[in-house]
Nucleic acid binder design. Structure first.
Length: 264
DNA sequence: ATGCCAACACAATGTTGA
Protein backbone atom coordinates (compact mmCIF):
# COMPACT_ATOMS: atom_id res chain seq x y z
CA UNK A 1 0.00 0.00 0.00
CA UNK A 2 1.25 3.45 -0.93
CA UNK A 3 0.36 6.46 1.22
CA UNK A 4 1.53 10.05 0.99
CA UNK A 5 1.34 13.48 2.58
CA UNK A 6 1.36 16.81 0.78
CA UNK A 7 0.92 20.43 1.80
CA UNK A 8 -0.90 21.36 -1.39
CA UNK A 9 -1.33 25.11 -0.73
CA UNK A 10 -4.91 25.33 -2.07
CA UNK A 11 -6.69 22.21 -3.32
CA UNK A 12 -8.89 24.25 -5.64
CA UNK A 13 -5.88 25.69 -7.46
CA UNK A 14 -4.04 22.38 -7.65
CA UNK A 15 -6.74 19.74 -8.09
CA UNK A 16 -5.38 18.70 -11.50
CA UNK A 17 -1.88 18.24 -10.12
CA UNK A 18 -3.25 16.20 -7.22
CA UNK A 19 -5.20 13.82 -9.47
CA UNK A 20 -2.20 13.45 -11.78
CA UNK A 21 0.06 12.75 -8.81
CA UNK A 22 -2.28 10.10 -7.35
CA UNK A 23 -2.42 8.27 -10.67
CA UNK A 24 1.24 8.68 -11.61
CA UNK A 25 2.52 7.50 -8.23
CA UNK A 26 -0.19 4.89 -7.68
CA UNK A 27 -1.19 6.35 -4.32
CA UNK A 28 -3.85 4.61 -2.22
CA UNK A 29 -4.37 7.31 0.39
CA UNK A 30 -3.10 10.89 0.56
CA UNK A 31 -3.07 13.28 3.52
CA UNK A 32 -3.42 16.89 2.42
CA UNK A 33 -2.65 20.10 4.29
CA UNK A 34 -3.51 23.72 3.51
CA UNK A 35 -6.52 22.91 1.36
CA UNK A 36 -7.38 26.60 1.89
CA UNK A 37 -11.13 26.16 1.53
CA UNK A 38 -14.22 25.32 3.52
CA UNK A 39 -15.22 21.66 3.66
CA UNK A 40 -18.12 22.27 1.27
CA UNK A 41 -15.83 23.97 -1.25
CA UNK A 42 -13.54 20.96 -1.63
CA UNK A 43 -13.47 19.88 -5.32
CA UNK A 44 -14.73 16.30 -5.11
CA UNK A 45 -15.71 15.51 -8.69
CA UNK A 46 -12.31 14.97 -10.29
CA UNK A 47 -11.22 12.77 -7.39
CA UNK A 48 -14.42 10.72 -7.46
CA UNK A 49 -13.95 10.13 -11.17
CA UNK A 50 -10.46 8.90 -10.39
CA UNK A 51 -11.88 6.49 -7.80
CA UNK A 52 -11.08 8.38 -4.58
CA UNK A 53 -13.29 9.38 -1.68
CA UNK A 54 -12.54 12.39 0.51
CA UNK A 55 -12.66 13.26 4.20
CA UNK A 56 -12.05 17.00 4.49
CA UNK A 57 -12.14 19.66 7.19
CA UNK A 58 -11.90 23.33 6.35
CA UNK A 59 -13.40 26.28 8.25
CA UNK A 60 -12.33 29.19 6.04
CA UNK A 61 -9.62 30.20 3.56
CA UNK A 62 -6.83 29.33 5.98
CA UNK A 63 -5.35 25.96 6.90
CA UNK A 64 -7.65 23.00 6.18
CA UNK A 65 -6.77 19.30 6.10
CA UNK A 66 -8.07 16.22 4.30
CA UNK A 67 -7.49 12.57 3.50
CA UNK A 68 -8.13 11.36 -0.04
CA UNK A 69 -8.42 7.59 -0.38
CA UNK A 70 -9.26 4.85 -2.86
CA UNK A 71 -9.34 2.31 -0.05
CA UNK A 72 -12.41 2.52 2.20
CA UNK A 73 -12.43 5.26 4.83
CA UNK A 74 -13.82 3.57 7.95
CA UNK A 75 -13.89 6.48 10.40
CA UNK A 76 -13.05 10.18 10.50
CA UNK A 77 -11.98 12.37 13.42
CA UNK A 78 -12.07 16.15 13.09
CA UNK A 79 -9.23 17.48 15.23
CA UNK A 80 -7.68 15.53 18.08
CA UNK A 81 -8.92 15.51 21.70
CA UNK A 82 -7.13 18.28 23.56
CA UNK A 83 -6.19 20.21 20.41
CA UNK A 84 -5.60 23.78 21.59
CA UNK A 85 -7.43 26.77 20.17
CA UNK A 86 -5.59 29.69 18.61
CA UNK A 87 -5.65 32.12 21.50
CA UNK A 88 -6.40 35.31 19.61
CA UNK A 89 -9.56 33.80 18.16
CA UNK A 90 -10.55 31.02 20.54
CA UNK A 91 -11.14 28.87 17.46
CA UNK A 92 -9.80 25.33 17.15
CA UNK A 93 -8.31 25.64 13.69
CA UNK A 94 -8.61 23.08 10.88
CA UNK A 95 -5.16 21.58 11.36
CA UNK A 96 -5.79 17.91 12.15
CA UNK A 97 -7.93 15.20 10.63
CA UNK A 98 -7.67 11.51 11.42
CA UNK A 99 -8.96 9.02 8.88
CA UNK A 100 -9.06 5.32 9.66
CA UNK A 101 -8.67 3.53 6.34
CA UNK A 102 -8.44 -0.06 5.24
CA UNK A 103 -4.69 -0.36 5.57
CA UNK A 104 -1.96 -2.83 4.59
CA UNK A 105 -3.18 -6.42 4.53
CA UNK A 106 -6.66 -5.18 5.40
CA UNK A 107 -5.59 -4.01 8.87
CA UNK A 108 -7.04 -0.63 9.88
CA UNK A 109 -4.60 2.26 9.53
CA UNK A 110 -5.29 5.64 11.11
CA UNK A 111 -3.72 8.41 9.07
CA UNK A 112 -3.50 11.78 10.80
CA UNK A 113 -3.17 14.69 8.38
CA UNK A 114 -1.42 17.38 10.42
CA UNK A 115 -0.72 21.02 9.73
CA UNK A 116 1.38 22.22 12.65
CA UNK A 117 1.13 25.98 13.34
CA UNK A 118 3.88 28.04 11.76
CA UNK A 119 4.95 29.97 14.85
CA UNK A 120 5.67 33.15 12.87
CA UNK A 121 8.36 34.68 15.13
CA UNK A 122 10.05 33.44 18.28
CA UNK A 123 8.46 36.25 20.33
CA UNK A 124 5.03 35.97 18.71
CA UNK A 125 2.07 34.34 20.51
CA UNK A 126 1.82 31.97 17.57
CA UNK A 127 5.13 30.42 18.61
CA UNK A 128 3.77 29.48 22.04
CA UNK A 129 0.67 28.16 20.32
CA UNK A 130 2.87 25.98 18.11
CA UNK A 131 4.66 24.45 21.10
CA UNK A 132 1.37 23.89 22.95
CA UNK A 133 -0.14 22.33 19.86
CA UNK A 134 2.72 19.86 19.48
CA UNK A 135 2.66 19.04 23.18
CA UNK A 136 -1.09 18.39 23.09
CA UNK A 137 -0.63 16.15 20.05
CA UNK A 138 2.05 14.20 21.92
CA UNK A 139 -0.26 13.77 24.90
CA UNK A 140 -3.06 12.52 22.69
CA UNK A 141 -0.69 10.18 20.81
CA UNK A 142 0.58 8.74 24.09
CA UNK A 143 -2.95 7.75 24.97
CA UNK A 144 -3.55 6.20 21.57
CA UNK A 145 -0.54 3.92 21.91
CA UNK A 146 -1.33 3.12 25.54
CA UNK A 147 -4.76 1.85 24.55
CA UNK A 148 -3.34 -0.51 21.97
CA UNK A 149 0.40 -0.55 21.17
CA UNK A 150 -0.23 -2.71 18.08
CA UNK A 151 -2.34 -0.05 16.39
CA UNK A 152 -1.29 1.17 12.94
CA UNK A 153 -1.07 4.95 13.12
CA UNK A 154 0.75 7.54 11.03
CA UNK A 155 1.22 11.15 12.12
CA UNK A 156 1.93 12.75 8.79
CA UNK A 157 2.02 16.23 7.42
CA UNK A 158 3.65 19.62 7.53
CA UNK A 159 5.36 19.74 10.92
CA UNK A 160 6.84 23.18 10.33
CA UNK A 161 9.98 22.05 12.16
CA UNK A 162 13.40 21.41 10.65
CA UNK A 163 14.77 18.89 13.15
CA UNK A 164 18.41 19.05 12.03
CA UNK A 165 20.67 21.84 10.83
CA UNK A 166 21.07 20.00 7.54
CA UNK A 167 17.30 20.25 7.02
CA UNK A 168 17.67 23.90 6.00
CA UNK A 169 19.75 25.34 3.18
CA UNK A 170 21.66 27.72 5.46
CA UNK A 171 21.43 27.39 9.21
CA UNK A 172 22.94 30.88 9.59
CA UNK A 173 20.01 32.32 7.66
CA UNK A 174 17.63 30.78 10.20
CA UNK A 175 19.39 32.07 13.29
CA UNK A 176 16.76 33.60 15.55
CA UNK A 177 13.90 32.30 13.41
CA UNK A 178 11.25 29.68 13.93
CA UNK A 179 11.43 26.08 12.64
CA UNK A 180 14.96 25.49 13.91
CA UNK A 181 14.72 26.56 17.57
CA UNK A 182 15.57 23.99 20.21
CA UNK A 183 12.12 24.00 21.86
CA UNK A 184 10.51 23.22 18.49
CA UNK A 185 13.02 20.48 17.82
CA UNK A 186 12.51 19.01 21.28
CA UNK A 187 8.75 19.02 20.72
CA UNK A 188 9.29 17.16 17.45
CA UNK A 189 11.70 14.61 18.95
CA UNK A 190 9.28 13.84 21.76
CA UNK A 191 7.32 11.57 19.44
CA UNK A 192 10.37 9.31 19.19
CA UNK A 193 10.40 9.01 22.97
CA UNK A 194 6.78 7.90 22.79
CA UNK A 195 7.70 5.05 20.45
CA UNK A 196 6.90 6.62 17.10
CA UNK A 197 9.50 6.37 14.34
CA UNK A 198 10.01 9.01 11.69
CA UNK A 199 10.21 6.65 8.73
CA UNK A 200 11.48 8.88 5.91
CA UNK A 201 14.71 10.21 7.42
CA UNK A 202 16.82 7.08 6.89
CA UNK A 203 15.30 6.27 3.49
CA UNK A 204 15.48 9.49 1.52
CA UNK A 205 17.53 12.66 1.71
CA UNK A 206 15.90 15.77 0.27
CA UNK A 207 14.15 18.99 1.10
CA UNK A 208 10.33 19.04 1.01
CA UNK A 209 9.76 22.81 0.76
CA UNK A 210 11.22 25.66 -1.26
CA UNK A 211 9.99 29.24 -0.87
CA UNK A 212 8.40 30.80 -3.95
CA UNK A 213 10.67 33.84 -3.57
CA UNK A 214 14.35 34.45 -4.27
CA UNK A 215 14.79 31.58 -6.72
CA UNK A 216 14.86 29.20 -3.80
CA UNK A 217 14.00 26.14 -5.89
CA UNK A 218 16.40 26.71 -8.79
CA UNK A 219 19.12 27.33 -6.21
CA UNK A 220 17.95 24.33 -4.19
CA UNK A 221 17.61 26.47 -1.09
CA UNK A 222 14.93 24.49 0.69
CA UNK A 223 13.76 23.06 3.98
CA UNK A 224 12.84 19.61 5.18
CA UNK A 225 9.72 20.07 7.29
CA UNK A 226 7.27 17.40 6.09
CA UNK A 227 7.55 14.08 7.92
CA UNK A 228 5.81 10.79 8.63
CA UNK A 229 5.90 9.42 12.16
CA UNK A 230 4.71 5.81 12.31
CA UNK A 231 3.53 3.89 15.37
CA UNK A 232 5.77 0.90 16.24
CA UNK A 233 3.54 -1.57 14.41
CA UNK A 234 3.22 0.69 11.37
CA UNK A 235 6.97 1.35 11.27
CA UNK A 236 7.73 -2.36 10.91
CA UNK A 237 5.58 -2.40 7.76
CA UNK A 238 7.45 0.40 5.97
CA UNK A 239 9.37 -0.78 2.94
CA UNK A 240 10.35 2.48 1.28
CA UNK A 241 9.96 6.25 1.27
CA UNK A 242 10.40 8.91 -1.37
CA UNK A 243 10.15 12.67 -1.79
CA UNK A 244 8.59 13.71 -5.09
CA UNK A 245 10.89 16.62 -5.81
CA UNK A 246 9.68 16.92 -9.40
CA UNK A 247 6.32 18.19 -8.11
CA UNK A 248 8.00 21.51 -7.29
CA UNK A 249 8.76 22.10 -10.97
CA UNK A 250 6.79 24.05 -13.51
CA UNK A 251 3.88 26.44 -13.49
CA UNK A 252 1.35 26.02 -10.71
CA UNK A 253 3.46 24.06 -8.24
CA UNK A 254 2.83 24.05 -4.50
CA UNK A 255 5.80 25.25 -2.47
CA UNK A 256 5.81 21.81 -0.76
CA UNK A 257 6.24 18.44 -2.49
CA UNK A 258 4.64 15.08 -1.63
CA UNK A 259 6.30 12.60 0.73
CA UNK A 260 5.44 8.99 -0.13
CA UNK A 261 5.67 5.91 2.09
CA UNK A 262 5.10 2.32 0.99
CA UNK A 263 3.75 -0.14 3.53
CA UNK A 264 3.48 -3.89 3.29
C1' DA B 1 17.02 22.78 -15.38
C1' DT B 2 13.76 23.82 -11.93
C1' DG B 3 13.16 30.62 -12.71
C1' DC B 4 12.96 35.82 -9.57
C1' DC B 5 5.91 34.95 -4.53
C1' DA B 6 1.30 32.93 -4.33
C1' DA B 7 -3.23 32.09 -2.41
C1' DC B 8 -7.19 33.86 -0.25
C1' DA B 9 -11.22 37.43 0.37
C1' DC B 10 -12.77 41.31 -1.43
C1' DA B 11 -12.91 44.83 -4.41
C1' DA B 12 -7.50 48.19 -3.18
C1' DT B 13 -5.11 46.22 -0.46
C1' DG B 14 -4.46 43.14 3.70
C1' DT B 15 -3.23 38.51 5.65
C1' DT B 16 -0.69 34.47 5.76
C1' DG B 17 2.96 31.53 4.88
C1' DA B 18 8.39 29.88 6.34
Amino acid sequence: MRIATWNVNSIRTRIDRVVAFLERENIDALALQEIKCKTEQFPLDALREAGYEVAAHGLNQWNGVAVVSRVPILDVQIGFPGQPAWNESGIVEARALGAKVEGPGGAPLTMWSLYVPNGRELDHPHYGYKLEWLDALATYSTGVLAEDPARLVTLMGDWNVAPMDSDVWDIEFFAGRTHVSEPERAAFRKFEDLGFEEVTRTRVDNYTYWDYQQLRFPRNEGMRIDFVYASPAAATRVVSAQIDRDERKGKGASDHVPVIVELT
